[in-house]
């Protein structure tokens, strides 16, 4: 008790030094004035003592990389997707334009899902344990073929050698498809081909039409578009070859983290059904996503 009284006196002296004008009546309350002041200070300056409020980081991310297009619309894509997805949960889209950085970024990550081309997925599943869940759909189809087209008047026996191919896909992807289409022409012809990267399929076709490239590697659908836009230019083209059917974009989850990412997968699956969601998917050249069938999942394993 003696110790407590001594402590109270010492605090009072300090308080008197700090606040000499404090009335004696308050001093009579012994420790009470100090407590009042301390309480006031804590209340008044609490916002300075506490950390500033931080905007919550989205918990789940869609990691996006697509070697089939060079269109640099990532800023708009991210804003549009994030605005839409944030209404459904703590989700965000993270686009990448470099394959190596993308693959380094997803390594070991379980807080999200991947949105990739089917060609890239087949490659990725050899490096990471992944489970393909959804496939992109356009015009009711989940697959597409790539077509190599050139002007009708440019074909000659040595044509493939030194051909300048416009493509919206990156060089690795384009060369891979060209190998599939022109495999019979031999390595020499393939290695002499120049690939010119353009932002989108329609640019590749116009590059042939206006003489900036000798051939274009595009989707079948973009040729249908060309037919609608400029039938004359479409008629001037001939088909040099066609790839096999390829799936459109694939949505995959880390094999051991599918349940955690289920709500985000469901949000993506429903996106095409909502007008606002569909308009965002159009930016990726898709109308919607649907679950992969058992046979499609098998086909992706090959």
């Amino acid at each position: 008790m003696k110790i407590i009284m001594h402590f109270k006196q010492k605090m009072l002296i300090r308080f008197k030094k700090l606040c000499p004008s404090v009335p004696l009546c308050l001093r009579a309350f012994s420790f009470a004035p100090l407590c009042l002041i301390l309480a006031f200070c804590l209340f008044a300056f609490a916002p300075l003592l506490l950390p500033l409020p931080v905007k919550a980081q989205p918990k789940h991310t869609i990691y996006f990389f697509n070697p089939e297009t060079n269109i640099n619309n990532f800023a708009s894509l991210k804003i549009e997707f994030d605005t839409y997805l944030s209404k459904l949960g703590e989700y965000q889209l993270q686009p990448f334009n470099d394959r190596d950085i993308f693959e380094k970024s997803i390594s070991g990550k379980k807080d999200g899902i991947l949105l990739v081309s089917s060609w890239h997925y087949k490659n990725l599943k050899e490096k990471f344990p992944l489970k393909a869940v959804l496939v992109g759909v356009f015009n009711g189809k989940s697959t597409q073929k790539r077509v190599l087209s050139a002007r009708k008047d440019t074909g000659n026996p040595g044509f493939f050698k030194g051909m300048n191919v416009a493509s919206a896909g990156n060089k690795e992807y384009t060369m891979n498809i060209l190998k599939e289409i022109l495999g019979g022409q031999g390595e020499d012809a393939l290695s002499a081909i120049q690939i010119m990267s353009v932002p989108k399929d329609i640019d590749a076709l116009m590059a042939v039409g206006f003489g900036m490239a000798t051939a274009a590697l595009t989707s079948e659908n973009s040729l249908l578009n060309l037919e609608k836009i400029n039938p004359k230019q479409r008629q001037q083209l001939k088909q040099l070859g066609k790839s096999g059917e390829m799936f459109l974009a694939i949505v995959a989850a880390p094999a051991d983290a599918e349940p955690e990412n289920r709500p985000l997968l469901e949000a993506l699956a429903k996106m095409g059904g909502a007008p606002e969601g569909e308009s965002k998917l159009r930016m990726l050249g898709l109308e919607g996503f649907r679950a992969l069938s058992a046979s499609e999942t098998e086909a992706l394993k090959k």
């Binding site: 060079n70 708009s76 549009e80 932002p199 989108k200 590059a207 159009r282 930016m283």
Partner: peptide, 30 residues
């Protein structure tokens, strides 16, 4: 051989113009 496209959606809505939805995939900036 390539184009950079900016689409003003505010004006599309304001003027009520028919936009080919498929073309949105070719836009760099909205």
């Amino acid at each position: 051989a390539g184009s950079h496209i900016i689409l003003n959606m505010k004006k599309v809505e304001e003027y009520g113009i028919e936009l080919n939805k498929e073309a949105i995939g070719s836009v760099n900036k909205i």
